[in-house]
Computed example of a mutant assay.
Amino acid sequence: MLINAFVPRDFRRDTRKMTPHAHDDFDQASLALQGNFIHHLRYPWATDMSKWRVDGHHAVSSPSLIVIPAQSVHTTQDVGEGWVQLVDIFSPPRPDFVEKPGWVCNEADYPA
């Protein structure tokens, strides 16, 4: 697993600059250590319409953990007042994060 801890902060993200995205071949877990969040999820469509899922908007408080499956479009919104902090956990590790010094808490486990 690869661990990416965000710096705690006491301001909210600009909702006009959210970052919905998906990972093709790895899962992500987001561990909320402080604050309140809404995890927005959209699942990929399949050819069988009976298997389509409605978009999910999951409001959570800390501490909590959500596992986001590969290929699910997702973004997280911090809500409410006070400090917020998330830790993202990826499996398998993301090579693009490992290549950026200081981005990964356990980067020593992934030498270049």
Results as ranks from 00 to 15, higher is better:
S62H: 05
D48R: 01
S91C: 11
D27P: 07
Q34E: 14
W52C: 04
T19W: 13
V84F: 05
A22F: 15
Q28W: 00
Q85W: 01
Q85S: 00
V60N: 05
D78L: 09
G56K: 12
V67G: 05
E81C: 06
G80N: 06
I89T: 03
T15Q: 11
V73R: 05
H21G: 02
V79Q: 07
K17C: 09
V54L: 11
S91V: 11
Q85Y: 02
I66K: 02
I66V: 15
V73M: 09
V7Y: 03
A46L: 13
F37W: 03
P92L: 08
S91Q: 12
Q71S: 13
P8E: 06
S91W: 12
N36G: 04
F11I: 14
H58Y: 15
R13S: 07
S62T: 10
V87T: 05
P8A: 08
Y43S: 09
G82T: 03
V87G: 08
K17T: 09
P63S: 04
H21I: 07
D88M: 05
V87Y: 00
D27K: 03
D55A: 12
H23I: 09
P92F: 00
A59Y: 13
A29E: 02
T19I: 14
Y43T: 08
V73N: 07
V60E: 11
R42D: 11
G82E: 06
Y43L: 06
H21M: 00
P63A: 03
T47E: 14
Q28C: 06
S91E: 09
H40S: 02
F6D: 13
T15D: 08
H58R: 11
F90T: 01
N36K: 15
H40Y: 13
G35V: 07
F6W: 11
D24R: 04
D78V: 12
D10K: 13
P20D: 12
V54E: 12
D10Y: 01
R16N: 14
H21C: 03
H40G: 01
R9G: 03
Y43M: 10
R13V: 13
S72W: 15
S50W: 03
W45L: 15
W83Y: 09
D27M: 01
M49I: 12
